[in-house]
Design a binder for these strands. Structure first.
Length: 337
RNA sequence: CCGCUCUUAGCUCAGCCUGGUAGAGCAGCCGACUGUAGAUCGGCUUGUCCCCCGUUCAAAUCGGGGAGAGCGGACCA
């Protein structure tokens, strides 16, 4: 995954696969990359009204895909959010509109992005009957496993077993060639591959982005419900404070915790998955006494410099906060309206 | 519907039997040390004790009612 973007241009395959954690399957992706023009990719989001760094990560991939020639569908999954106990249907639908505006502010090309409300088609008769057919194909245990990383609340509701089946069905109903999601979606997509052939639909091709590690510990996934996340409602000061407190050993491969839990370096992850995909060059401002400014036009040398000690974590953090703020500023302004 | 168990700090739980108005660990916050964070020291904070009614001088604790969660209710006698 070293990439040969020395000429600043990437071919379709590289645009599709850069910064992804996993692709299912490689052969299917290669087929799509051969003629991406007019192919359709989608991501579904439970409406939240305010974009956070997790949304932004898959949005970056959508931008890559648009650049590669894909058409993009963003599913504002109001019905899913409802089934996942996220509030009243009315509240959810209101936040769905705000979320759409947030995505546009973030940088999705408005003319090439189709926003679809789940309730626009998920309540149709034929959809419902197909959903029941999938219910017949799936055990409760399987549905529950698929939801393990997605569900909210402490107890499993029947609605949450229906949820992944609807995600599977959405793919053929939206006419999608590629399903995109974070790694927490992989079990849902695997379920879709297993179950859709049972109703004479194609098993979907999917692509999963990595999950950013918890900002303060580097262990586990960054959570928006608990702990620290970065979102479009953060002020510059809040971003500075959060980045300042972030876990950042001077390496890309931190030691596991005392309990043997794997850790990542979230500061580097955000540089890799959020900053470099959106900026041509990154300037790390540094006091003269430490050697003056550093300039990078891709991620790998920055990581190498941190590893070697040439780049101090404190300076890296300063730059990270600056660029994160630039990414968030348009959404923040949009929220202020 | 019936039965059993559970509900106390952000989290996991102790305390309840033998009433005297609340504790531990973890988390969090603050300082020291590091040119970041973490680790390591030092210090600190936190509560409608699920809700209502009752008994009592006094209820997290006893009694009654209610709510939520978990488990069970098959067969064979």
């Amino acid at each position: 995954m070293s990439g040969n973007h020395t000429d600043g241009r990437m071919d379709a395959h590289e645009l599709i696969t850069r910064n992804v954690a996993e692709v299912v399957t490689e052969a299917e992706i290669e087929a799509l990359a051969e003629d991406p023009e007019g192919k359709r990719a989608y991501v579904g989001y439970e409406p939240s009204g305010v974009l956070h760094i997790g949304h932004m990560l898959t949005a970056n991939k959508l931008i890559d895909l648009q650049e590669a020639g894909f058409e993009v569908t963003v599913l504002l999954a109001d019905v899913h959010a409802y089934l996942n106990d996220k509030g009243s249907f009315e509240e959810i639908r209101r936040t769905a509109e705000r979320m759409r505006d947030q995505f546009i502010a973030y940088g999705l090309e408005e003319s090439r992005t189709q926003f679809v409300l789940g309730s626009d088609f998920q309540l149709d008769d034929d959809y419902t009957l197909d959903l029941h057919a999938l219910g017949l194909e799936t055990t409760i245990a399987r549905a529950e496993r698929a939801m393990a990383e997605i569900k909210s609340g402490d107890s499993v509701k029947v609605s949450q077993a229906v949820y992944p089946l609807m995600q599977a069905l959405d793919i053929p109903y939206l006419g999608v060639d590629l399903a995109v999601g974070g790694m927490e979606q992989r079990k849902v997509h695997m379920l879709a591959r297993d179950v859709l052939p049972g109703i004479d639909r194609e098993p979907p091709t999917s692509l999963h982005t990595p999950l950013i590690a918890d900002l303060t510990t580097g262990a586990g996934k960054m959570s928006s419900s608990m702990g620290v996340t970065i979102s479009m409602e953060d002020s510059r000061e809040e971003i500075d404070a959060k980045v300042e407190k972030a876990y950042c050993p001077p390496t890309a491969e931190p030691e596991p915790t005392g309990e043997g839990i794997e850790r990542e370096n979230p500061v580097l992850q955000i540089f890799e998955y959020h900053v470099f995909p959106r900026f041509e060059t990154v300037v790390v401002e540094r006091p003269e006494k430490y050697g003056g400014d550093l300039v990078y036009d891709e991620y790998a040398p920055l990581e190498a410099d941190l590893e070697s000690g040439e780049l101090h974590p404190a300076d890296a953090k300063g730059a990270l906060a600056t660029y994160l703020d630039r990414l968030i500023a348009p959404g923040r302004e949009q929220l202020a309206e």
